[in-house]
C-alpha cells in the first residue's frame, strides 16, 4: 500500500476512538487531520516526481522530492480550486485546456483547506477540534485522493503536477 493509503487508514482508525467511551480525543483528531494533509501532499509529490524525475540514478528521486515546498504548492492549488488559473504564469496558462478536470480542482481545494487545518491541529494547542468536522475532512480528502488515483493521464494532470514545482520559477519570469 502507498504511504498515502496507510496515512488515511491510520486517520480513520484514530477517528474511531478505538474503544474510548468519549470517542476520539483531541490528540487523535490532531493526528488524523495531519495524516490526511500529508496523504494528499505525498500523493501529489509522488506523482509529480514520476512525471519530472528520471528513474535512474535511483537516489535522485529521494533528493528531488525535497524540492517541493508546501507554500508554493498551496499557491498553485489556490489558483485551481478558485478557478483563478488566469493568475498563473503565461507558461502554465498555455499548458492547460478547458475544462480542468474536477479531480484536479477538488484535490487542489482540499490541499489548501487541509494545510490550514493541519497548522491549527499541530500548533494551536488551545484549538478544540470537532469530531464531525475532522471526520468530514478526512473522508473527503480520502475520496478526492481515490478519484485522483483513478484519474487517467491527461495533459492537464501533467501540467498541474509540473506547476507544483515550477510555477514559482515561471511566475518570476
Amino acid at each position: 500500500m502507498s504511504i498515502s493509503g496507510e496515512l488515511f487508514d491510520q486517520a480513520e482508525h484514530l477517528l474511531t476512538g478505538y474503544g474510548k467511551p468519549g470517542g476520539p480525543d483531541q490528540t487523535d483528531m490532531r493526528r488524523a487531520i495531519s495524516n490526511a494533509y500529508y496523504a494528499l501532499f505525498h500523493a501529489m509529490v509522488d506523482d509529480a516526481v514520476d512525471v519530472l524525475c528520471p528513474r535512474t540514478p535511483g537516489a535522485l528521486a529521494r533528493h528531488f522530492r525535497r524540492a517541493f515546498v508546501h507554500t508554493n504548492m498551496k499557491t498553485v492549488c489556490k489558483q485551481f480550486s478558485g478557478r483563478r488559473v488566469a493568475g498563473l504564469s503565461d507558461t502554465m496558462k498555455s499548458s492547460f485546456t478547458d475544462p480542468i478536470e474536477s479531480q484536479i480542482t477538488v484535490l487542489a481545494g482540499l490541499f489548501v483547506q487541509l494545510q490550514a487545518q493541519r497548522q491549527l491541529a499541530d500548533y494551536d494547542t488551545l484549538e478544540s477540534l470537532a469530531v464531525s468536522k475532522i471526520a468530514y475532512d478526512v473522508q473527503t480528502a480520502k475520496s478526492a485522493w481515490t478519484s485522483w488515483c483513478n484519474m487517467p493521464s491527461s495533459n492537464n494532470k501533467t501540467a498541474f503536477l509540473v506547476s507544483l514545482l515550477m510555477e514559482k520559477h515561471w511566475k518570476r519570469d
Binding site: 468519549g22 470517542g23 470537532a130 469530531v131 464531525s132 468536522k133 471526520a135 468530514y136 473522508q139
Partner: peptide
Amino acid sequence: ERHPTQQQIDEL
C-alpha cells in the same frame, strides 16, 4: 457532539 452520525457528518 462526541459521536456524530454519518448523516450529521454529511450535512456539515
